[in-house]
Amino acid sequence: MVRQAPLWTALLAGAVLLALATIAAVGRGVAVARRAAGAGTPVAEVARLLAQQRRSTLAADRLLWRSGPAAVCVAAALAALVVPLGRWTAWDSPVGVVWFNAMEVVVWAGLWLVGWGANSVWGVVAGYRFLAQGLAYELPHMFALTTVALGAGSLRVGDVVAAQSGLWFVVWMPVAFVAYLVAALAMAFWGPFDAPAQADLAGGLGAELSGVDALLLRAGRYLMLTAAAAFAVPAFLGGGAGPLLPAWLWSLLKTVAVLGFLVWLRDRLPTVRMERYTELSWLVLLPATLVQALLVAIVVLLR
C-alpha cells in the first residue's frame, strides 16, 4: 500500500516538514496574540534573529555549542524521512520505526551540547534538566513504538499503515498513543515539558544564544515537534486512510490536527517538574505501556 517514491521526494519530505513547522509557529503566534495579526510574529522574529548579532560567551566551547542546534534540525529532517505521505514514502526502510526512535534520541545529545557549550550556569543546568527529562520519557516512548510494531508485526512504517486498514491503532492502543504524545512533547521540549527552555532558567538552553544560533534552536524545536506529530499519523492514525480526499491530503490533515493539538496544549498546562515526572513516568506510565504491549501481544496471538 505504501510504496517507495523516487529519490527526489526525500527533499520534498524535508520541504513539507519545514512548511508544517512554519504553520505550527504561525499558529503559536496567533495563539499568543489571540488575534489573527499574531500570525506575523514568527516572521518578524525570524527577521529580527537573522539581522541580530551573534554572540559568544567567555571560554565557551564554540564547536560543541554551535553543533547542538544544527544536529537537532538535521535529525528532525532525517526522522521525517520515514513518514509516508499518503501512498508514498521517501525512504521505505525495513526498520523505519527504530530509525525514527534513533533520530529522536539525537535531541538528547544536541540539547545537552547547546546547554554545555555556553559556559553559562543557565545552559548547563538546562542541558542536564533535559537529560533527566529524557531518562523519564524515553522508555514509555520506546514501548509505545514497540507496541505499534507488535500490532503490525513489522518495523516497516508502510506495513504499520497497512496493518491499520481495518482498525486504527489509536482505537485499541490508547495508552501507547498517550505515551507517544507525551514523548512527542518532551522530545521537542514543548508545552508542559519545556523545563529546559523555561523562564525560570532565564530561557535555559537559549539563555546565551542570539542571532542565527537562537533561530536554529527554535527551528529545531518546531521541526522536532512537527516530525513527532507527523510520525503519529502512520503509527496510530491510519496514515493516509480516509474517505473522499486523496491519501496524501489525509496524511497532511491528520498531521496538522495532531500538531495543532500539541501547539494548543502549550498554554493550557504549567511546566512539569522533572523530579515529579520521573517517578510518575517510571511507576505509572511505564507499567501502563507494558500492560498495553501485553494486551496487544495477546491480540496478535489470537488473531
Binding site: Q52, R54, L58, A60, W122
Partner: peptide, 12 residues
C-alpha cells in the same frame, strides 16, 4: 546581520 560577532561576553 548588523554587526559581526563581537568579543566573547561574560555569561548572564
Amino acid at each position: 546581520r548588523v554587526a559581526a560577532q563581537g568579543a566573547p561576553r561574560a555569561p548572564f
